[in-house]
């Protein structure tokens, strides 16, 4: 995957966030403060503008710019967390011009580690970690099993979606939802839901790039 695929990924995320903004906000209204949709829309709109102004020429530089832009423009919990995830993933990719599925799996592991370090959430705390962690695991497993790229990314996206849905019965241990104690049970975590969008967007971007190359 080259820089263009990664740029497409970000474009797909921005589109998905815009389309699902109200749903994300509604999820956040139930157990948070009703701003997750607006936060991500503001962030990814800024990212799209930043990428238009300045087109980084490696996947690593691109993800680094995405991460910094999110940190600088989103605020809230999700800004530094998503920002760190993209930044750390970008760092892990170094200045390679193309990225294999295995490289990507390692980079996303680094991103996840950044989120864990910064936010302190473990799986089961009903946060974005509950979607990101299984997705990253599924990707690594697919690589290990020798699956193709498309299949591997599909597995990651499915795992993220399943992970997000699995937050519904959880009781929140981190983030705003934790203030609700037992009342946080029964609602999907908005950050986990948006993380599922991020992985679905990756899948879509890879597929589209492939097609556009006639692949």
């Amino acid at each position: 995957m080259d820089t263009a695929v990664f740029a497409r990924w970000i474009g797909e995320i921005a589109a998905a966030v815009r389309a699902d903004k109200d749903r994300l906000t509604r999820l956040d209204a139930a157990i948070g403060d009703a701003d997750h949709g607006a936060n991500l829309e503001r962030g990814f709109d800024a990212v799209v503008r930043a990428l238009a102004d300045d087109s980084p020429d490696t996947p690593g530089a691109l993800l680094g710019l995405v991460g910094n832009t999110l940190i600088r423009r989103v605020g809230g919990a999700s800004g530094p967390l998503y920002g760190t995830a993209f930044r750390e993933a970008g760092k892990a990719l170094g200045d390679a011009r193309t990225v294999s599925t295995a490289d990507l799996a390692r980079a996303l592991e680094a991103g996840l580690a950044g989120v864990r370090r910064l936010g302190g959430a473990a799986e089961g705390d009903k946060t974005m970690v509950d979607a990101i962690a299984p997705a990253v695991r599924a990707l690594a497993e697919a690589v290990r099993d020798g699956s193709g790229q498309r299949e591997a990314l599909g597995a990651a996206a499915s795992a993220a979606l399943a992970g997000a849905e699995a937050t519904i019965p959880m009781r929140a241990g981190k983030g705003r939802a934790s203030y609700l104690g037992p009342r946080s049970v029964g609602h999907e975590d908005p950050g986990a839901a948006s993380a599922a969008l991020v992985f679905a967007a990756l899948c879509a971007a890879e597929a589209a790039s492939d097609e556009s190359r006639g692949g």
């Binding site: 403060d33 009703a34 701003d35 607006a38 936060n39 503001r42 940190i71 600088r72 423009r73 989103v74 605020g75 809230g76 919990a77 800004g79 530094p80």
Partner: peptide
């Protein structure tokens, strides 16, 4: 001041 109910950013 951040956006409504959203923490400001480090900048």
């Amino acid at each position: 001041p951040g956006e409504i109910f959203t923490s400001p950013v480090p900048d």
